[in-house]
Structures are given as structure tokens and as C-alpha cells.
Write a protein that binds this DNA or RNA. Structure first.
Lengths: 342, 342
DNA sequence: TGCAATTTTGAAAACGATTTAATTTAAACT
DNA sequence: AGTTTAAATTAAATCGTTTTCAAAATTGCA
């Protein structure tokens, strides 16, 4: 059923009907009601493509899903959905395979230039992220989940990765640990750099020297956690504490410790970052896992909100949020055991 | 830059330009080349909304992301992306909160009727799924990931859940286990029913009786795994083997066993279903986990392909694929230990 | 009641492409 | 060369809305 036809049914002009449905003020309340009722009764819905053509809006927010970051991504997306529920805005996901950087940028460029979305969310940015430069150049509104280091002004939402890791490390130091290893995220992305900094700063503040042999980088998988944890734990002197980048990493760390006959919480203290997945709970691990915690889902929800603000005209420079991170202590952390450590 | 303007630059009519760009055969090769070159040089791209209005195609496949199924979902999505990379088709994700069934159906209905997508993928169907009936009624092409039980003909791709669980259970029986528990997926969805059937059939074939106290249903989280495993393992006589619905469930099961001082692979054999996540590997668990395995990502990739076939006119009834599931034995399964079992 | 001011409604022009049907140009035959 | 056939191009209609600007209906007030 088309607008014209529908309008004829009501003995009104398409103009009035259109206005009635989009809630313009210059249509009498009684007719608006009449139109609205008829719309449900006759099942009339404006053709979305026609609307989009004439309004110039697409009604969608774009987001890239990079291979290897799917776990966190799903939670984030879910949060976005929470906010967008009811708004007439879709989420357009572009899964992106592992290409080389140039190819990836081309793909991204095509995506943005095709104007299939009204705004973009960039995640896992790098310090000087080309994507940000491009979006800025093309005038496409965008929000960065995380931070970059760039001259262009941009809207962002990030968690305090630096502070979180600094606090976790400092806590371990307080417990008497001096050889503390860290399995961080992928090298090169800003949040990994921030975590590196937090870790180093904590050490330096206590007058300890940074030992590069105690830090590793990789994606958030149990595999990475297992491999690096093993290699750390086979060092001598053995580190007595370990900071892990994610829950998955921590699973690998637990396995590694177990495979070496070490008891987590006694022989080796572990703190991991927890993005609060509904399907994996730090409390249920054995032993329960001490974590720095910040909800990915909440970040997704808020990001959607911020994008909406951006779309309704709020300047990007006024959108900058840094979220604090909780430190939650459970059984996986304890004082350095006698004979270990220094 | 608009088509008209762009055409003027080339001293051609909009018609010819449009045809040249969309690769119609009735335009001379030399002019097509000229147009194509100019398009990149001048950065012309057809307005996506105009194209959509006139062609009636949206260029998107819709998929629902239900709260609580995010893990599997992300992998599936990623697989879809693999296939859709290069096609001019987007994935439109509608995260859906936990509403009551009626509200959820309304939402779904709105989504489908707004015609924002060319086709739909329905996941985690129920035996008589309203969504399938609706899509059929509205004439919207769709693919079901999983199966339903309904009169309407539909295209589907599913893995052999029944066979997988039957085989896993039979294997445990072969090892001498007689009290085998199962933590299945959410109640009511078809795949859980299929798994239930596989489990029962395996028991019945060996002349064993089905004991409802050994079967539980719930979503795929470590929490559910932990809770049900504990309650099973506290029964007396204690089950000596357990079939788990997912890797996350298995994590909970491992924790539960450990918390009771039981050794997985000796005191309790465990087989779980593995959807092949890049971030969680059955080999890295301690002990390594025996699994029934089928790649979610591969299913997503194939699903995208099947949807494309559907869109290009292949009848839904000709699209029906049942994928076999591998059984991979690792350390978490072993013969029933002396004194246990019967 | 009559006139101005204010609401409501409508006609027609966008929006920017694709596609049908018609026209021009080029190639292929006698 | 003259006609027929095929290839390449174009003018104009179309997709289904929103929105501008103008007209009609209603209200308020003297």
C-alpha cells in the first residue's frame, strides 16, 4: 500500500497524511488520530527507501567487526541495541577479514564513502588512526570507542585502562610481589599502550625497574594466555604475579599454572581485566579471579547514546568520556609466598 | 556529485553512465572504461538511497541478536561477513532485549514489515516458530539457522545436534558409564530438543532407562554449567559422565568438579559441544576437553551464501543442509573408574 | 456579520538514481 | 550505394516519499 492510495482511503492528501504520521504540529489532533488508526488498521508503512532518499538520512550507524575481536564486540553491540531499541536506527555491521593495512583501509574507505550510514563507531583505535583522519575528512560523524592521538578533534568514550592497570599492579606490589608479568592486548592499539604505561608507572613509583622480558602482547585468547603464561612461569626467577588482559587470557593463564603444578592465588597471583560477559563469571572460576572490571555492554549502550547526540548536532569536541574501572579482589590474588619474590 | 552533473562532465547521458557503471552489456567497451575511470577520478558514487528506491532492493540481510546468545552470534556474524565481503550487501543487526514473547514478536514484526532488509536469518528457532510463519506470510525471503517444525516450507541450515549428542553419549556408554548427566541448552528451542532426543536414544538403544533428574536445561554460560554440574555431582549415586552444551558450560563444569575435589577425565568424564571459538580452545583446557565440534563461523559463511542463492531465486524448499558433527576425543573422557558406575 | 489572523489542508516540486521505449549511429549485406 | 540489421545512446517516465508554497477552512474579535 502506497501513500497515495492510503491517503485516498482517508480522503486526505498525501501531504496531510505524511505530516500526521511524522507528528508535525500543523495537523489537527482529530485527523492525526484518524490517520494513525487507519495506518495500523490498513497496515500502511512508508517505504523506507523513499523516506531515506528524500530526507537524506539513512537511519543506520555503522560499526566494524574485526576478526579476532568478536567476543568483546558482541557485548558492545548488545549494549548499543539496548539504547537504540525504539529509535528508528539500525546497526550496520561490517565484518572485516584480516587484510593487510592498506587493503583494510580501502575497504573502510569504500564503506564510508558509500554513505550507507549516518555515523560510525570506530573501535580499537591506534595512536594515529587513519580511519579517524578519513572520517574527519569526509565529514562523517563518528565516535571513537577508545582513544587515539591525533590532531583532528573527535568524540570518544574510553575506560581508564592506564589507571586500572596501574592500580592492579600497585596492589600486587603492596602484597609484596616484585616480579610481576603482564600479558597485554595486541601491540600497537592505544589501549594496550595505555595499559603498558599504567604498568610501568606503578613499577617506577616504587623504584622498581621495568623488565621487558615480563611483558607480552597478543590478542585476547586463552591460547595466548596459556603460551605466554607458560613461558613466563618457566623463567627463573619465576614471576609471582601476573596481570592478564582479559578473561580469556586468564583462562589460559590458569591452565598454564595448573600444568606446571602451581596454585593460582598462592604460587602465582593473577588479576585480569573483566569486560563483564554474561557467559563467563570471575566468581565462578576456581579460584575466583580478581579483576579490574568495566562493562562492555554499558560502554556500547552509552556509545549509542553519544552517537545520537552527535547526530543531533552536539559538537564532537564536547563528547569525551573517561570511565573509571573497578578493582575487585577475589581469591586469585594473595601475598607473595615465603621464599618467592625478591 | 550527482549523476546528472557527472554525466555532463563526460558528455554522455545519465542513462549511459548508469549503465556503464552497473556493467550492462549494451554500452561500448571504450565508453565503459572512460566512465569507470572518470568515476574514480572525480569520486562519483551513486546515491545509495536513490538506487534502493528505484530498484526496490535494500542491499542488506537482517539478523536478530538475542540477549544471552551473543557469543555464538559473533562467530556466526563473522562467518557471514567472510562470504559477504565484496558483495554489496550489508548485515543489519537488531539486538533484541529480553522482552516477553508477545512484545518480542511485535518488535520482530515491525522490523520485518519496515522492509529494511532483503532477507532474514532466523536463529535458535522453536518447533513452531511464529517468526517463520510471519516471514512466510509477508513473503520475505529467509533462512533458518537450525530447524523448526512447521507446515510452511522454509530454507534451513542446521548441524546434526541429535546425531552428535547420540554419538557422544554412546561413546560414554562404551566406556562403561551408565549414569550420564546432560546440561543442555535453553528449553524449548529446537536444537535442545534434538539433543535431548539424541541423548535418550543412545540410552534406550543400550537398554538403559532415561532419568529426568540427570538432565538440565539453560543458557550457555559458565554459571549454568557450574550450578547444574554441582547439583548433579552431589547426587548419590553420582553420575560418572556429563555431556555439556557448550564450551562455556564446560568451564563451569570443570570448576564444579574441582570445587568438589573431583578430577575431570578420571572421576568424571566430560564431553562438550564446541562451536570453535578463536578465543577458547578445547586443547588448552586442563585437562583438554573432548568435544563434539562444528564451526559456527563456517555455518555463518554458508548461511550467507544460501541467502544469496535465495535472493537470486532459488526455491526455499531446495535449500536444506544438515551438517555432520565431529567427535574429538581428548583427556576429559576416560573409562569409568573402579567402584563407580553400576 | 464581516474581516483579519490563524489553523488545516493540498498541489506540485524535489530527492537521485534506474529502466523502458525511442532514436541515432555504425556495421553488414546485396 | 542503398538497404537491413545490429550496436550504442538518449529522453522521459518511474520509484514513494517529504517539503515548500499557496489555498481553503476555521477561529477570534469588533
Amino acid at each position: 500500500m502506497k501513500l497515495k492510495e492510503f491517503a485516498k482511503h482517508l480522503d486526505l492528501s498525501p501531504t496531510t497524511v505524511s505530516r500526521a504520521l511524522s507528528g508535525y504540529p500543523e495537523v489537527r489532533e482529530s485527523t492525526r488520530k484518524r490517520v494513525a488508526d487507519a495506518a495500523i488498521r490498513l497496515g500502511y508503512r512508508p517505504n523506507i527507501n523513499a523516506v531515506r532518499l528524500v530526507t537524506g538520512r539513512v537511519g543506520a550507524i555503522g560499526i566494524l567487526m574485526e576478526r579476532g575481536r568478536e567476543v568483546n564486540f558482541a557485548e558492545f553491540l548488545s549494549g548499543m541495541g539496548e539504547r537504540l531499541d525504539g529509535e528508528d536506527i539500525d546497526i550496520l555491521v561490517s565484518p572485516i577479514a584480516e587484510h593487510d593495512a592498506k587493503e583494510e583501509m580501502q575497504l573502510f574507505s569504500r564503506l564510508v564513502e558509500s554513505r550507507r550510514v549516518d555515523a560510525f563507531i570506530v573501535n580499537a583505535p591506534r595512536p594515529n588512526d587513519e580511519r579517524i583522519a578519513l572520517l574527519h575528512k569526509l565529514g562523517m560523524p563518528f565516535l571513537v570507542h577508545g582513544r587515539s592521538e591525533t590532531d583532528v578533534p573527535y568524540a570518544w568514550l574510553d575506560i581508564d585502562n592506564e589507571g586500572a592497570v596501574k592500580r592492579a599492579t600497585a596492589y600486587l606490589l603492596d602484597l609484596g610481589h616484585t616480579r610481576i608479568a603482564m600479558i597485554n592486548g595486541r601491540p600497537g592499539v592505544t589501549f594496550s599502550l595505555h595499559r603498558d604505561k599504567g604498568y610501568r608507572d606503578a613499577l617506577v613509583e616504587r623504584g622498581l625497574q621495568f623488565d621487558p622480558r615480563l611483558v607480552a602482547h597478543g590478542s585476547f585468547t586463552d591460547e595466548i594466555g596459556f603460551r605466554f603464561a607458560r613461558s613466563f612461569l618457566e623463567q627463573s626467577p619465576r614471576p609471582t604475579a601476573l596481570v592478564a588482559g582479559s578473561m580469556m587470557t586468564a583462562l589460559g593463564v590458569y591452565s598454564a599454572a595448573r600444568s606446571l603444578g602451581l596454585v593460582v592465588g598462592k604460587d602465582i597471583s593473577v588479576i585480569a581485566h573483566d569486560d563483564v560477559f554474561p557467559y563467563l563469571n570471575a566468581d565462578n572460576m576456581a579460584p575466583s579471579l580478581s579483576t579490574t572490571r568495566s562493562s562492555m555492554r554499558a560502554a556500547g549502550k552509552r556509545s549509542a547514546e553519544l552517537v545520537l547526540q552527535l547526530l543531533s548536532g552536539k559538537p564532537a569536541t564536547e563528547i569525551q568520556e573517561l570511565w573509571p574501572v573497578e578493582l575487585i579482589l577475589r581469591e586469585s590474588t594473595g601475598p607473595v609466598s615465603r621464599g618467592e619474590g625478591r
